[in-house]
Simulated assay, not measured.
Amino acid sequence: MATKEIILNKIQILITNHFGSPEEAFSFFDKNSNGKLTKKEIVKLLKQAKISGFIRGIVANRLIDGYDKDGDGLIDWEEFKFAIDDISDKSR
Protein backbone atom coordinates (compact mmCIF):
# COMPACT_ATOMS: atom_id res chain seq x y z
CA MET A 1 0.00 0.00 0.00
CA ALA A 2 1.23 3.51 -0.77
CA THR A 3 2.57 5.43 2.16
CA LYS A 4 0.91 8.60 3.41
CA GLU A 5 3.84 10.68 2.17
CA ILE A 6 3.62 9.25 -1.34
CA ILE A 7 -0.13 9.90 -1.49
CA LEU A 8 0.24 13.46 -0.22
CA ASN A 9 3.06 14.09 -2.68
CA LYS A 10 0.92 12.86 -5.59
CA ILE A 11 -1.91 15.19 -4.55
CA GLN A 12 0.50 18.13 -4.34
CA ILE A 13 1.95 17.31 -7.78
CA LEU A 14 -1.55 17.15 -9.28
CA ILE A 15 -2.53 20.52 -7.88
CA THR A 16 0.78 22.18 -8.75
CA ASN A 17 1.06 20.80 -12.29
CA HIS A 18 -2.55 20.87 -13.47
CA PHE A 19 -4.11 23.88 -11.78
CA GLY A 20 -3.16 27.52 -11.43
CA SER A 21 -4.05 27.54 -7.75
CA PRO A 22 -5.57 25.38 -5.01
CA GLU A 23 -8.81 27.39 -5.48
CA GLU A 24 -8.93 26.32 -9.13
CA ALA A 25 -8.41 22.68 -8.13
CA PHE A 26 -11.13 22.88 -5.48
CA SER A 27 -13.59 24.42 -7.96
CA PHE A 28 -12.75 21.79 -10.59
CA PHE A 29 -13.48 18.88 -8.23
CA ASP A 30 -16.54 20.53 -6.61
CA LYS A 31 -18.77 19.27 -9.41
CA ASN A 32 -22.06 20.38 -7.86
CA SER A 33 -20.59 23.80 -6.92
CA ASN A 34 -21.90 23.61 -3.36
CA GLY A 35 -18.60 24.73 -1.82
CA LYS A 36 -17.88 21.29 -0.36
CA LEU A 37 -16.17 18.16 -1.62
CA THR A 38 -18.03 14.89 -1.10
CA LYS A 39 -16.27 11.56 -0.73
CA LYS A 40 -17.12 10.86 -4.39
CA GLU A 41 -15.53 14.15 -5.48
CA ILE A 42 -12.44 13.44 -3.37
CA VAL A 43 -12.16 9.98 -4.95
CA LYS A 44 -12.14 11.69 -8.38
CA LEU A 45 -9.35 13.98 -7.18
CA LEU A 46 -7.40 10.94 -6.00
CA LYS A 47 -7.96 9.23 -9.35
CA GLN A 48 -6.55 12.29 -11.13
CA ALA A 49 -3.58 12.16 -8.73
CA LYS A 50 -2.97 8.57 -9.88
CA ILE A 51 -3.77 6.98 -6.52
CA SER A 52 -4.50 3.28 -6.97
CA GLY A 53 -8.18 2.43 -7.39
CA PHE A 54 -7.86 -0.21 -4.72
CA ILE A 55 -7.11 2.32 -1.98
CA ARG A 56 -8.93 5.47 -3.19
CA GLY A 57 -11.96 4.92 -0.95
CA ILE A 58 -9.79 4.29 2.10
CA VAL A 59 -7.66 7.36 1.40
CA ALA A 60 -10.76 9.53 0.82
CA ASN A 61 -12.17 8.42 4.17
CA ARG A 62 -8.89 9.17 5.93
CA LEU A 63 -8.64 12.60 4.32
CA ILE A 64 -12.16 13.40 5.46
CA ASP A 65 -11.46 12.04 8.94
CA GLY A 66 -8.26 14.06 9.17
CA TYR A 67 -9.36 17.39 7.72
CA ASP A 68 -13.14 17.65 8.24
CA LYS A 69 -13.03 20.07 11.16
CA ASP A 70 -16.78 20.77 11.36
CA GLY A 71 -17.74 17.08 11.30
CA ASP A 72 -20.19 17.26 8.38
CA GLY A 73 -18.46 14.46 6.43
CA LEU A 74 -17.45 16.88 3.66
CA ILE A 75 -14.40 19.02 2.93
CA ASP A 76 -15.18 22.72 2.51
CA TRP A 77 -12.80 25.31 1.05
CA GLU A 78 -11.19 26.24 4.40
CA GLU A 79 -10.61 22.56 5.24
CA PHE A 80 -9.23 21.93 1.75
CA LYS A 81 -6.91 24.93 2.05
CA PHE A 82 -5.70 23.67 5.44
CA ALA A 83 -5.06 20.22 3.93
CA ILE A 84 -3.09 21.70 1.01
CA ASP A 85 -1.03 23.85 3.39
CA ASP A 86 -0.42 20.77 5.56
CA ILE A 87 0.64 18.73 2.51
CA SER A 88 2.97 21.53 1.37
CA ASP A 89 4.57 21.76 4.83
CA LYS A 90 5.19 18.00 4.94
CA SER A 91 6.87 17.97 1.55
CA ARG A 92 9.50 20.54 2.56
Rank of each mutant, 00 (worst) to 15 (best):
T38Y: 02
A2N: 07
K81E: 09
D70N: 15
L14D: 02
E79G: 04
G73L: 00
K36G: 06
G53F: 10
I42S: 06
K4N: 05
W77H: 04
D70F: 04
I15W: 03
R56G: 10
I58E: 10
L14K: 09
R92I: 05
I84C: 08
S88V: 14
K31Y: 02
G66S: 12
K47P: 03
A25R: 01
D72K: 09
D89R: 12
N32F: 02
R62H: 13
D68P: 03
S52D: 14
I64D: 06
D65E: 09
E23G: 13
M1E: 10
L8K: 04
G35S: 10
L37Q: 09
K40E: 14
R62T: 13
K47C: 01
G35K: 08
K81F: 03
W77T: 01
D68W: 08
Q48N: 14
Y67K: 06
E79R: 00
H18G: 06
D89W: 12
N9D: 11
H18D: 15
N61E: 04
G57N: 15
L8E: 14
D86E: 14
S33I: 09
I11K: 06
L45S: 01
F29H: 04
E23I: 07
F54R: 14
G20N: 12
D72T: 00
K31F: 05
F80D: 08
N32C: 00
F28K: 11
I15L: 07
K31R: 09
A83S: 15
K39H: 10
S33R: 15
G20Q: 12
I55K: 08
G73R: 00
L63W: 02
S33P: 07
I84K: 05
L37E: 05
L74V: 02
F82Y: 15
Q12H: 14
I13F: 08
G57H: 07
K69I: 12
N34H: 13
Y67P: 00
E78D: 06
L14W: 02
E5I: 06
G20M: 04
A49M: 01
I7A: 14
D85T: 02
K39V: 01
I11L: 13
I55Y: 12
I75C: 08
T38L: 10
K36W: 04
T16I: 11
T16G: 04
F29W: 10
L63P: 00
I11Y: 03
S33G: 05
E78M: 07
K39A: 07
S21R: 07
D30E: 05
A2G: 04
I55A: 07
E78L: 08
G71H: 11
T38C: 11
S21C: 01
K4G: 12
K31G: 02
D68K: 05
E5V: 11
D89A: 10
D76E: 15
K4W: 06
I64P: 09
P22R: 12
E79A: 09
F19D: 13
A49S: 11
K39M: 08
A25K: 05
N9H: 15
D30Y: 09
K90H: 06
Q12K: 15
A49L: 01
I6G: 06
D68V: 00
I87R: 03
I84A: 02
I51A: 06
N9G: 00
S52C: 02
K69T: 07
K90C: 00
F26D: 13
S88I: 04
P22M: 03
I64K: 15
I55M: 09
E5P: 00
V43M: 14
I42T: 11
G71E: 10
A83H: 00
L14T: 08
S27R: 15
I87K: 03
F80N: 08
